[in-house]
Write a protein that binds this DNA or RNA. Structure first.
Lengths: 212, 212
DNA sequence: TAGATTGTTAATCGATTAACAATC
DNA sequence: TAGATTGTTAATCGATTAACAATC
């Protein structure tokens, strides 16, 4: 499969397809069509077909895609087959929730360690080390870590971010509700609860108004 | 301010403006221009100006917007001034992290209680009640709850979702990595970690390839 | 006044949808 | 073969960007 340029919009839909395919009722036919997938997820069938065509050429007219093959193709496209090492900064509640979430391995993400200013505990329940902030740079360099997850309070996020970049990190998953200033080649992905809440809040407002 | 039809794209950018305005260095000039805001957040100035024009008519040529006024206008537009009651289902790690996160009040969100199959604990550290699933329907009806937050494992998400809707809920914030099937008038907002990870993963793949 | 900034109207860009030929 | 499904090419839609007139 030759890699085409892919848009962010398509990229964001791929995990949804993958999740559905992986959780599909077993025992049924081994093939699935773009049409069937679209119906199951409540999406347009043309869109799904086009998206799938971006990442796999296993589609066969009249038959569809071989489910296992499609799972493999999407996973590979998303880079889930080769694991990425990451570190997490900020072992508060949210940080610990993420550390404890086992599901990330499925996505090829491996959180090596957490860092925190407080040395209160040395290991998480899962046995991941919680280290002091002082060790951040040396750890990242030694382990060639490329991804950093920020779960510190908003006011510390920028300085943590700066240190991560100085330590050689290229991609940042930011859970702090602030805009981070970074050099051009660094990617910041904001996990922004406020954004989701805005959409929900707007929907409820419209609902309330309707009721009046 | 007359309400115009607003696109989802604009809606999702508003919380970012708001957060920046609220955390601005105090003591400086009380006015801020769309240009200044755009530069601070690394966005296009025309886009910011247009977005602001959607929610406020306090903009004055040569001067810009009065910061306090703008904060008020955006907050009001997003409905952050009148609080929304919500319940949370699934008091696992993620659920508890959300329950413990104090910041939601800022967005007008008030989590009244959590529900779980396990009656192990009656209250969270913050004093919010953790109730049994059996009480879900009666609680929602009695308190006229309109929003439900789902933090249960993927395999239970759909049945929880169905119960929430039956209990009168109109908007669902879904943290489970599955597609939820809902009637037309119900809004599901997926907080999808997998989506963010896909974007990050793709960036790192590109980075690795470059290095080779 | 001059100049910065606003809001609006028009042009561009990108993504989605529709139409259709190719294929098993 | 007939029909379902694929992938591709063209049309539509929506959002972003650019250009410009209005205003303090």
């Amino acid at each position: 499969m030759e890699r085409k340029e892919i848009s962010k919009a398509v990229l964001k839909r791929l995990p949804g397809y993958l999740a559905y395919l992986q959780n599909m009722p077993e025992g049924s036919v081994p093939y699935i069509s773009a049409t069937a997938l679209a119906n199951a997820l409540g999406m347009g069938e043309v869109q799904v077909r086009k998206d799938l065509a971006m990442v796999s050429d296993g589609g066969r007219p009249k038959i569809g895609y071989l489910r296992e093959r499609l799972i493999r193709d999407i996973s590979q496209f998303l880079g889930y087959d080769n694991t990425t090492d990451a570190i997490l900064v900020g072992a508060g509640k949210l940080g610990q929730a993420l550390l404890g979430y086992g599901g990330f391995e499925t996505y090829g993400l491996n959180i090596l360690a957490a860092f925190d200013v407080s040395p209160a505990f040395g290991y998480t329940e899962e046995g991941k080390p919680i280290l002091l902030m002082e060790q951040l740079e040396s750890f990242c360099c030694a382990n060639q870590v490329l991804m950093g997850i920020i779960t510190v309070p908003a006011e510390y996020a920028q300085q943590v971010c700066d240190r991560l970049i100085a330590a050689g990190i290229k991609a940042i998953w930011n859970f702090a509700p602030v805009h981070l200033e970074v050099p051009e080649h660094i990617l910041v992905q904001n996990e922004n609860m406020a954004t989701s809440l805005a959409v929900l809040s707007m929907h409820l407002q419209a609902h309330m108004k309707e009721k009046k």
